[in-house]
């Protein structure tokens, strides 16, 4: 099958046909505010009608939750989840906490690694 053949893309190797970016209004730009392990939480700010996808995501943010979990629990792809979260952040409907920074050519803080070890020993 040639690459120009439309049928070439509809097989098990190519995966299913989905249109996730329809949900995100056609936006595809990467978003710098959100990483997989960025934490988000709803601010409680009252907003008008957001539409079902924003509503679903905002309700997941009732408690502190990571971006990865928002994506997993909403069933939306990560890139789409980040775009919708970006909207919510713009509307001040959520607050965020960036991941713990990991610096180039630098050991993570001694205190941090000790805390991680302590927690692992207790598992």
């Amino acid at each position: 099958m040639s690459r120009g053949d439309p049928e070439a893309f509809v097989d098990s190797a190519a995966g299913r046909l989905i249109r996730p970016y329809a949900v995100a209004g056609g936006r595809t730009a990467p978003n710098e505010d959100f990483h997989l392990v960025t934490y988000v939480v709803a601010t409680g700010r009252a907003l008008g009608d957001l539409g079902p996808d924003h509503d679903d995501i905002l309700s997941l943010c009732d408690r502190p939750i990571s971006v990865a979990e928002v994506s997993a629990l909403s069933g939306l792809p990560l890139a789409v989840t980040k775009i919708l979260l970006s909207d919510l952040l713009g509307w001040r409907a959520i607050d965020t906490r960036a991941p713990v920074p990991v610096f180039e050519r630098a050991r993570p803080s001694t205190d941090l690694l000790e805390k991680v070890l302590d927690a692992l020993y207790k598992l």
Binding site: H35, L36, V37, T38, Y39, V40, V41, A42, T43, G44, P64, S66, D95, T96, R97, P99, V100, L112, V116
Partner: peptide, 12 residues
């Protein structure tokens, strides 16, 4: 009382 102050730091 802001929820954001209680957000954990994500590690990966």
């Amino acid at each position: 009382d802001r929820a954001v102050d209680n957000l954990p730091g994500g590690l990966k």
